[in-house]
Design a protein around this nucleic acid. Structure first.
Lengths: 346, 346
DNA sequence: CTGAAAGCGCTTACAG
DNA sequence: CTGAAAGCGCTTACAG
């Protein structure tokens, strides 16, 4: 029984110190590779290291964090971690964080303002050293407050226009413009735009680009070509919304879906309506992941370089680690180039 | 300048105590809702709570953790968080954890044994209160060690045969059998099986079910119908492997893909070879997510109920929170029913 | 009803 | 070369 208890015991630096007959601080120094600086004899160092290994010592990170003020944890807040785009983001962020010894706490907001605020509070209490967020409209205030407190923070995928917080996004306007131009070049006239009503800047920019590019080509009456849906429709609801929309507007000869999931739902709607791609319809989606790679050719993708976004975001975050004054972060707003991926011929 | 510094200062319980003219322990009691037990006057309680709010107090979770020994953090280790299946798992786990006030640290192993071990060590140091893992073969030893230390732990999607650690999986054997039977009932004879060579139990069970079900229907010579690929082929490599395999074995009239990503790659291979589904080929994949919902009908899916898996896993984990002796966890191995989703007619 | 003290496990000056 | 002490921010007995 005593054996069992001894086995269960969690080994601390004190235990090792006692065993080695030295002070805890000596053990700490050795285990942190400061034997040289502290001029601790090589023999003692070795003995302590071996003892630690044998006894199965693992530093209690919580204690280290409290003492040093460094948790080595980052907070990641996305719209929905199960969305393939955000999942890909999470993966690259994990990899990048790993290279500098950080772990990641993740949260999904589902575009819920209350939830988003609560998540920020939680992560703050957990003492994360930096925030990586895909912000929703309602988070603006909280995010600004964080920035004022000099918390390292980077926005991804979206940002708050006019507010000086580092962000990295794809050039949404340019990307959408490229897409619309591509469809028009292929002879499409009435390019519909299917989006979600959230007031988020990336969505607005895509819509604006569509509208203005259409106008540039003589299509000024775009009202009937626009479908704006509420968020969080169940797939079925979204699919039938899109079907109704298409049926009510028979002139449409191409559809631009503003996000990857809209694309997924939209394609199902098109299939249900027996519309051909690209025969009857030109289709464009915004996405990175190759969810669409298996679809019939003719679906064009505006590629958001998700890996790059994550990498640049981590870079911008790390730049803030050293920094005290927010002002030096000005100009850390990055717009990455989108890529038009035309698949097959249309 | 002083103002700025004052603004930046992080408020602690001490600050509030000083301001209120009481002891830190009183503040702590009030803020933890223990005013009643500690019989602190309602007036004082209210004053302290207001002061905390005004001063912008947020408890330092690290300190709380160190003192109480509870981090309220769970560790999630998956094969690859960017895989849609694991991403979906992560989402439900996040939601479930949230209901009991836990956050989640995630890690991907990419089936790398070294990485997996290192991740477990990291999470241990971070004092996570429980582990949710999709284990790889090489993790067995470390996982057993964790269990011996009475760390709450649940395996998902896979497990270690013969080792008494709680897990929740889909019934892989039954699922694969259902799939093969479905194809055979549709008149397919030479059902190929495409899998990945990792020695993981869920893969072996699927293969075994395929082999035995085939044998049951008189197909004993399955050697030529089996493609076992190494893991971590780049998509292109996987796709051409599958293409070569199919070309080298012209008699094949159906393919069973053992995982969702194999299905994605496989379908691209089939498309490249201009093989019709279901005209020329019957196809089956293992997956939960509706990645495949948009494909031509005829692709059948063995559904792994990812949400249920995550929910049951959290349940099994929580059951361990109270428990001291591992023995009481015996019988917490759950096999969920798979579902055969036949899409369209074939 | 409230406060002083100890302590969670570590690291970091500092003293010798 | 090494150790004793203080302290990170909290909570939890315990004393009054």
């Amino acid at each position: 029984m005593i054996d069992t208890v001894a086995f269960m015991k969690i080994i601390t630096i004190k235990d090792i110190a006692r065993e080695a007959g030295v002070a805890p601080s000596t053990v700490s120094a050795v285990l942190n590779g400061k034997s040289k600086e502290m001029r601790i004899s090589t023999g003692l160092s070795k003995q302590i290291r071996e003892l630690a290994a044998v006894m199965g010592y693992h530093p209690n990170h919580t204690a280290v964090s409290l003492r040093t003020g460094k948790t080595k944890v980052l907070g990641l807040i996305v719209e929905d971690i199960s969305n393939i785009f955000f999942a890909a983001l999470a993966k690259t962020i994990e990899d990048e964080a790993d290279t500098i010894g950080f772990k990641v706490l993740y949260c999904s907001t589902e575009n819920d303002e209350q939830k988003a605020k609560e998540r920020i509070r939680m992560l703050t209490q957990h003492q994360v050293e930096g925030f990586l967020l895909t912000p929703t409209h309602g988070m603006q205030e909280e995010v600004i407050r964080l920035a004022e407190k000099n918390k390292p923070i980077v926005l991804m995928d979206r940002y708050f226009p006019g507010i000086d917080i580092p962000y990295v996004v794809v050039d949404n306007y340019e990307g959408a413009k490229m897409g619309v131009q591509h469809l028009i070049a292929k002879g499409r006239k009435r390019v519909a735009f299917v989006t979600v009503k959230l007031g988020q800047v990336q969505m607005e920019l895509r819509k604006q680009a569509w509208e203005e590019t259409m106008a540039l080509h003589g299509q000024t009456d775009t009202g009937k070509l626009l479908l704006e849906m509420p968020y969080h429709n169940r797939p079925e609801a979204a699919i039938s919304s899109i079907m109704e929309f298409l049926q009510a507007n028979p002139g449409i000869d191409a559809v631009f879906f503003a996000t990857n999931y809209l694309g997924v739902y939209g394609l199902e709607a098109l299939k249900n309506l027996q519309l051909n791609i690209p025969g009857d319809l030109g289709v464009i989606c915004f996405d990175d992941h190759d969810i669409f790679r298996l679809y019939p050719p003719g679906i064009t993708i505006i590629r958001q370089p998700v890996q790059e976004i994550a990498k640049v975001a981590m870079q911008l975050l790390m730049e803030q680690f050293g920094t005290v004054h927010k002002s030096s972060c000005a100009g850390s707003q990055r717009k990455l180039e989108p890529e038009l991926i035309v698949r097959g011929s249309s």
